[in-house]
Design a protein around this nucleic acid. Structure first.
Length: 490
RNA sequence: CGGGAUGUAGCGUAGCCCGGUAUCGCGCCACAUUUGGGAUGUGGAGGCCGCAGGUUCGAAUCCUGCCAUCCCGACCA
């Protein structure tokens, strides 16, 4: 176990907090519920952004930016949307401070805003207000826009990365001429998310759709990807919504089709947030610290020199310089930690804590033998290999680590996804071996709610391409046509 | 928003019951010896004891109020 990190078996949530702080990903800020994302954490987010951004562009989307502030009146235009977000909005009421004469800075009551502004909890309303001006004809469609932004939701209870008052995300907002096209878009973006989360983050997901209870406020259908964390709790990693014509109607966005008939446009929205960082951390890491998938690790390879005299360091440095050039050609990021203020053992522990996938240690002995010591973070194994062909070896090893991490997480998810047929068994498993519980449900919101009230488990999703099978609801015994995935969730 | 806990050096803490200007460890700085798994020694720097009142000759300690953070619940990405 690493210094200062509690074992994840002892206290999982404390382990997570320790990891975030000690691995230098983020720290608490003076503002309740808000965190400071530190350079190391932010560089992971930047990688996530870069990959997703490319995927969005490849699927035809463009970035734009809409304001942080939303006039309050916009908000009330879509009824269920207000219901969903009203309770957690920060509101700007004044635009000036003043000195009260006693040296205190206070709100200037004379500077009250005519119309209060909401700090965006999401941007549907201001975007659809804007789209009204952008869309007149089918020729203006589809409109495929994404924005990278911060949003604020005044949550009662916050957790680093998983639920913060302010968080970073991207939100895609698209407009289409037909319902089919909008649904296809929502499904396409769900696939993009699943592809990214599985192949870059190495986190296996279940694609599905939400029940009406769990749907986004204002959506007709919500698609999601759900991942299982190491403590057996589910985490929603991304969502994609088919919004129907709700927002188009609320903001009066109509277009003329080819027959010159006026109709409301069809909409989608989709997003992932810094919460993905939470999924990344919780899926792979262990008691020694973070385990990062090579494809998202800010540092993929770290080189630690071991030497007694300066000339030894010079020899090692010369060799590392060559290795660095080779690896850069392969787009592999390498860091040569030649600080002489820290000893090798300290550095080993530090990079393990930070989840660097591969460590190369080179000492005088290695220089004589033309070898290096290679240590894998995922398996915590070490091997001595020849310097010749090292760059190729590292390249292969990084790919192997990426696959191994994913495989490990997949095995875990599979092993913790269980079919359950009785309510007693359902409750027992939730307490003894939590995970995804695949069970029959009679399809009513009342049953879903009762199960939630009694067990804290929610329906995470109805898996896409679910196989149909006759069964009985675990709570009511009423007939059911398919299993749904239950879990306790973040 | 309810319940619980905590606030003392950059971090973690002792002291609080029983009032006398603050303990220890890590980290930091300097020098030396070290360097293949979190080095050792010696010397040193660092404190509005969360904030504001009150009691007292005297408050980290007692009293009142406030603030903040964390944890657990209800609400949510």
């Amino acid at each position: 176990m690493s210094k200062g990190i509690i074992s994840k078996d002892e206290d999982y949530s404390q382990w997570f907090n320790d990891l975030v702080i000690k691995a230098d990903l983020a720290e608490y800020s003076p503002v309740r519920g808000c965190m400071i994302i530190k350079p190391y954490g932010y560089s992971i987010w930047e990688k996530i952004q870069a990959v997703l951004d490319k995927m969005f562009k490849e699927t035809g989307h463009s970035n734009a930016y809409f304001p942080l502030f939303i006039p309050k009146s916009f908000f009330s235009k879509e009824a269920s949307h207000v219901d969903g977000f009203a309770k957690e909005c920060a509101v700007v009421t004044h635009y000036r401070l003043k000195n009260d004469g006693n040296g205190n800075i206070i709100v200037d009551e004379d500077a009250k805003l005519e119309e209060e502004l909401i700090v965006r909890p999401t941007s549907e309303t201001i975007i659809w207000h804007t789209y009204k001006g952008w869309i007149q004809s089918y020729r203006d469609l589809p409109l495929l826009i994404n924005q990278w932004a911060n949003v604020v939701r005044w949550e009662m209870r916050t957790r680093l990365f998983l639920r913060t008052t302010e968080f970073l995300w991207q939100e895609g907002h698209t407009a289409h001429a037909t319902q089919q096209e909008a649904i296809a878009e929502a499904e396409l973006m769900l696939d993009v998310y699943a592809d990214f989360v599985e192949n870059w983050m190495a986190v296996p997901v279940v694609k599905g759709r939400k029940t009406p209870n769990e749907r986004f406020a204002g959506a007709l259908d919500t698609y999601c990807i759900e991942a299982l964390m190491q403590d057996g709790k589910a985490l929603q990693a991304g969502t994609s919504h088919f919004l129907g014509q709700n927002f188009a109607k609320a903001f009066d966005v109509k277009f003329s089709d080819k027959e010159n008939k006026l109709d409301y446009v069809w909409a989608t929205s989709w997003g992932v947030s810094t919460r993905l960082m939470g999924a990344l951390i919780m899926s792979h890491s262990d008691d020694a610290g973070l385990v990062l998938p090579p494809m998202l690790a800010p540092i993929q390879v770290v080189v630690v020199p071991i030497y007694k005299h300066d000339e030894e360091l010079e020899n090692i440095s010369a060799y590392v310089k060559g290795l660095t050039t080779e690896l850069r050609k392969k787009n592999i990021t390498i860091k040569f930690d030649n600080r002489d203020t820290q000893r090798p053992g300290f550095k080993f522990a530090e990079y393990e804590l930070k989840g660097v996938p591969l460590r190369v240690a080179i000492g005088s002995r290695d220089m004589q033998n033309a070898t290096v010591e290679l240590a894998r973070r995922d398996t915590r194994t070490k091997e001595t290999v020849a310097q010749e062909g090292l760059a190729e070896h590292i390249e292969k090893l990084l790919e192997e680590i990426q696959q191994n991490i994913f495989k490990k997480a997949s095995t875990f998810t599979t092993e913790n996804t269980v079919e359950v047929d009785t309510y007693d068994e359902f409750k027992r498993l939730l307490d003894e071996k939590p995970g995804f519980l695949s069970a029959h449900w009679d399809g009513t919101p009342e049953t879903e709610q009762q199960i939630k009230d009694e067990t804290k488990a929610t329906i995470r999703c109805i898996p896409l391409n679910n196989k149909l099978e006759a069964g009985k609801c675990i709570l009511t015994g009423k007939p059911s046509t398919q299993r749904v995935l239950f879990a306790r969730a973040y």
